[in-house]
Amino acid sequence: MKITVRLQINGAEARFEVDSTERLVDTLREKAGLTGTKVGCGIGECGACSVLLDGKVVSACLVLTAQVDGAKVATVEGLGKAGELSDLQGAFVREGAIQCGYCTPGMLMAAEAILARYRRPTTEQIRKGISGNLCRCTGYAKIVSAIRKTAGRRAIQRSGR
């Protein structure tokens, strides 16, 4: 039996017919064509599938699409565009926080959640905030500094306002 689910993905309304067991990550990758969200483990351990669900970071491999009817989903594809990277994406590029890049989309979503939660996160808060996102290539150092610098820049922007 198919269930009809409505989602708002990166601001756009979408409708899907899904089985009750379909995972959100598969809906995104296979039905919505949003392959920016990755799969690394399928059991909620690696964070490659991290997306924001109504503003909270979740592992999309653990969410059933049928459970989240009406939710707002934010994926990496909604962050920026070619030539118009978001400040966070720009910082990842400048700091060299990317190697194979397979963890990057999930890392960016986890980082957005940290930045939404703390105005000026400490290094420890950042390290904790991304501890659910595995990266096998970078050793995390440049990822942490990209997030810290983005927080700094956002704080300056806020105070300038």
Partner: peptide, 10 residues
């Protein structure tokens, strides 16, 4: 990196 932009954009 040459591939950085494509990677951060997903």
């Amino acid at each position: 990196r040459l591939d950085a932009e494509a990677k951060v954009l997903g």
